[in-house]
Design a binder for these strands. Sequence first.
DNA 1: CCGACATATCGACGCCTGTCTATATCTGGT
DNA 2: ACCAGATATAGACAGGCGTCGATATGTCGG
Lengths: 109, 109
Amino acid sequence: MEVRRIEPCCAPITDEALSAEQSQELARAFKVLSDPVRLRLLSLATAAPTGEIRAADLVAPLGRSQPTVSHHLSVLADAGLLLRDQRGREAWFRPVHERLAVLRAALGE
Amino acid sequence: MEVRRIEPCCAPITDEALSAEQSQELARAFKVLSDPVRLRLLSLATAAPTGEIRAADLVAPLGRSQPTVSHHLSVLADAGLLLRDQRGREAWFRPVHERLAVLRAALGE
DNA sequence: CCGACATATCGACGCCTGTCTATATCTGGT
DNA sequence: ACCAGATATAGACAGGCGTCGATATGTCGG
């Protein structure tokens, strides 16, 4: 998916026109959010009481295969929206609120 | 693209987990923003001094064919992010800031 | 009424991406 | 050492989407 770390890239799109490069970078970022499974993973991570989730616990609720869930978690981690914490054979993930804030900021206000 | 009007659909994803339906709806919305041409169109519309843009004036700066630009404008209009104002043979577009705000709100805060 | 302009629609093509099954890798416990 | 559990990787397949050229539709001016 050509995932790239989400970084502050530009003024809010409500303020000034984007360059070709800026729009491409932003589009890549929003593409990460354009899948229902990934959005659900992100919300499950943020809403988790402990603030983190374990990969194995997500397969059943999402109704997708284990490799598919693993794939989406990697996409979110590569984008910097989730932070992977490997503990032995388990993979735990925490949301990175600052990255979400970057995208929110790009939408204006 | 199965575009649908962008509506307030859910609490911020930072607050509580999304349902399958909510995540699908949100994903559809972000998919509209996941293309560089559409992001650029949106920013050009918002940054325009008069607050509106004419379709014909966008072909050259975007470097895409006229049908492609027309297509993307339609996607944005269908999503409710742009408001189409037909004036004779010309099509003018204004940004709908409330729709952008809906997406911003879904990202938290 | 005709030609130039503005936009939308159609059909096709190529690439990208989400999904799966099968398999590999690594870890922890017994 | 072995087995079971957790995760990652590989490969394949199907559907979706951005793009284009060609064409249709509609509008203004002379």
